[in-house]
Design a protein around this nucleic acid. Structure first.
Ligand SMILES: [Zn+2]
Ligand SMILES: [Zn+2]
Ligand SMILES: [Zn+2]
Ligand SMILES: [Zn+2]
Lengths: 165, 165
DNA sequence: CTGTTAACGTTATAATATAACACTATGTCG
DNA sequence: CGACATAGTGTTATATTATAACGTTAACAG
């Protein structure tokens, strides 16, 4: 049996992230093996950068991180974007459209889109996994065949609401 | 009594768009009057460009359109972005994050975010107005104070599904 | 008018993303 | 093994989207 995925909203709760990180990387490795795909070192490198936190990162932040760790090579944007493209395609990461940023997936494997809560105070982002019935029903009524959905809710997280008062 | 707004999914149905356009522009004018805001000629110009269709347009497409219509001035990006910012703020248009594009709002006034169906075949975009209970419930459970929500569903519209088979 | 502010115009530049093409690693088959 | 096909990588240049900064003009209140 494969390891358990993270519960919704993990980023907003204290947890043993070291463990979380290891688990997600191992799930990714396994998933690529099952699908007969190559999680090359570049791809893993980019995934690991994103797995280091539950924060979203811009492509150029990732690029900078790559260039920091790997001395004496100068890595260029296409390398990052290609790795991101692969990881997106396999549902190992997500793109946050409203931030032009990328974030590691909290429960890899689902390719159909996720939902995010984005705190505009602390910039933390939590991935949910809600079945989005109301919307899908409406789409269905109009005969629309859903492919991918982007749901990004901006606001203030519980923690930050306390600190404002 | 103010004029009726468009029903959900208007862009996917045949309708008298000339009328639709006039109505939305008049609603916008009225709404700005009520709010004591200036719908200046630049702002109206940009709104009219977006009202010309129910299609999303990139900022630079709008810019090109401005430069086409107004001979002998060369308009620059900030002008467009500022008009867009105003229109967004008043809920007269929306930003489609996953397309980096802007679209006229089908029922102006609601500032809290909308839902879109985006056909990847014909590029048409329909605005819905669904109360998004499942998501808001989950956000509520986590104590998250919602501010703005982005919902963009990509797929194939009913019409395009026919033409594929 | 005259001071105050909002909107506009202009220039330059930042931030994000991709096209195009050459090179290298990986695996297949004779 | 060695030739081939293909997927992945590296490199350069450039496209696309968006904003900073600052001066000018228009609108409006006193
Ligand atoms: Zn974690
Ligand atoms: Zn927060
Ligand atoms: Zn219409
Ligand atoms: Zn369509």
């Amino acid at each position: 049996m494969s390891p358990k995925t993270q519960s919704p909203g993990i980023a907003f709760r204290k947890h043993d992230h070291r463990r979380c990180q290891r688990q997600l990387l191992s799930e990714a490795t396994q998933l690529c093996a099952e699908r007969n795909l190559r999680l090359t070192s570049r791809r893993r490198q980019v995934l690991e950068i994103l797995l280091a936190s539950h924060q979203p990162m811009g492509a150029y932040d990732i690029l900078a991180e790559l260039n920091r760790s790997s001395r004496n090579e100068q890595i260029a944007p296409p390398i990052v974007y290609r790795a991101l493209e692969f990881l997106l395609g396999e549902g190992l990461i997500h793109r946050i459209e409203s931030l032009n940023a990328f974030i590691s997936c909290a429960h890899p494997g689902h390719r159909c889109g996720a939902q995010f809560l984005i705190c505009r105070d602390c910039d933390q982002v939590a991935e949910l996994e809600v079945s989005d019935n109301d919307l899908l029903a409406e789409a269905g009524d109009l005969g629309f065949a859903v492919d991918h959905s982007v749901v990004e809710i901006t606001g203030v997280c519980a923690e930050c609401q306390k600190h404002v008062g």
